[in-house]
Write a protein that binds this DNA or RNA. Structure first.
Lengths: 249, 249
DNA sequence: CGTTTCGTTGATAGTACTCAAGTGGTGTGG
DNA sequence: CCACACCACTTGAGTACTATCAACGAAACG
């Protein structure tokens, strides 16, 4: 049991620290991209166009949370992937599934620029080229981890993994525990974890009964015992490396 | 039913065409990378070192088939991802799961070079920088698609999807149908599709009974009815866009 | 205040996992 | 050449988990 906690120290940050840790990344990006990118604000549930390669568009997330959704024929909606500030999004990164779209899950701000411009800018700036490669590699690792989560974990473990991810990304440490303003609806969570909404409801009920979770109105969630939550998923340590503040610096 | 076949034309190629379509990609890579990369030949089941960022290594697949495997605590081995010729592999692309390793699934040839060198070369060559970005984006799409397959499809559909993928990548068109020399063992396939080996055995028996599959010794597989196989997975059209010869040119 | 939507919960069915026994092929040693 | 052990694959029976369907309750909205 101690092995899990070694690397999975509960390190959600307060808003001030969040702003602080985003600073260096934003400064680096601003230098070259700011002049050529178009700032775009998206409201909740707004879809952003995902064009195909000839006129491909690149998005860079500045704030908020976005996701890729798909609508397989005759099946439920899927939430394939989540994007956080700093992430790079382009059409060719996404499989050509029916109903694929990029959707803002919260009020978000992104930079938009043509793929050709993006590539030209990176080619002209070695430092930023390497940085973009590392960023895309990190996103790839997250996509692979998600496949692993959905493929091998049961419902409870999947949900615990998502809570750990959101806690590390969006959590605020408070006196009673970690508070998360979860930007995903029940349906979103179910679609992301490849679970039925009914099954997810049972899982949340179980978590509440076990004291792992307390819910307020409007998606506000309190996690009283972070360590106990981390112990509920075998991948807490791995999530820590990909979602903890230090990993994105 | 016709909608599936519109884009999923059975287009496995014969060896000659395979060599032909790989040509342009290899030529482009050779120019800059060849001088700085170390050619490495790996035998079947050989593991390649995956170092962490400070001394990170980049591999570029030249021939063969490789995979990322992980050994979650108390669970079965997982095959997280498959890599084909032209793919780019580095440690930071892979989640930090226990027992993570890069393994050659067939006799393979790769180019190895330090991440710093790789980044420097891309920074110096705009054309190759853009090419590498497109390649990594394509790999990302495949990883996301795999998560979708494992998350929403049942056992039969998952297996059919893998057969379509391998048929498009490795298949040879013959008089009796498409022949595939499957380089994966039963265990490999089960671990890749997040299925139990027993369950996979039942699935293959079902496929044989339905006339979708004929097996010879040593992994040689014949698919008599490609269209029927494509109709067995809802993602045939999507697989086509990511694995058909035209997609990798 | 009625209507709609979302979340919850129970009963049931379908799917895959687990364990166990049986089968076939391969390699080794007598 | 045969006997044996060993391994991978197959197949059956029981179990666990999740999906599905339906009913109910609560909150949001007109």
């Amino acid at each position: 049991m101690t092995s899990i906690f070694q690397n999975a120290t509960p390190a959600p940050v307060n808003p001030d620290q969040t702003a602080e840790r985003l600073a260096p990344r934003i400064v680096e990006s601003e230098g070259v991209l700011r002049e050529h990118a178009t700032p775009v604000r998206a409201r909740r549930r707004q879809r952003l166009a995902l064009d195909h390669p000839p006129s491909e568009t690149v998005y860079i997330v500045r704030s908020g949370l976005l996701g890729i959704e798909a609508l397989p024929a005759g099946k439920h909606r899927q939430l394939l992937e989540l994007f956080y500030p700093g992430d790079i999004i382009r059409r060719s990164q996404v499989p050509n599934l029916p109903g694929t779209s990029l959707t803002a899950l919260t009020v978000s701000e992104v930079w938009r620029l043509p793929a050709r411009s993006f590539e030209a800018l990176l080619a002209a700036n070695p430092e930023q080229c390497a940085q973009a490669q590392r960023r895309v590699a990190e996103q790839h690792a997250r996509a692979t981890l998600h496949a692993s989560i959905v493929g091998t974990l049961n419902g409870d473990e999947r949900f615990a993994s998502l809570l750990v991810e959101l806690g590390l990304r969006l959590g605020n440490a408070g006196p009673a525990g970690i508070t998360i303003d979860v930007p995903l609806s029940r349906t979103d969570i179910a679609d992301y974890l490849a679970l039925n909404p009914d099954t997810l409801s049972r899982i949340t009920s179980r978590f509440k009964a076990r004291g792992l979770l307390t819910q307020f109105g409007g998606g506000n969630t309190l996690i009283p015992a972070w360590d106990a939550l981390c112990a509920s998923t075998p991948l807490a340590a791995t999530l820590q490396t990909l979602h903890a503040p230090a990993a994105t610096a």
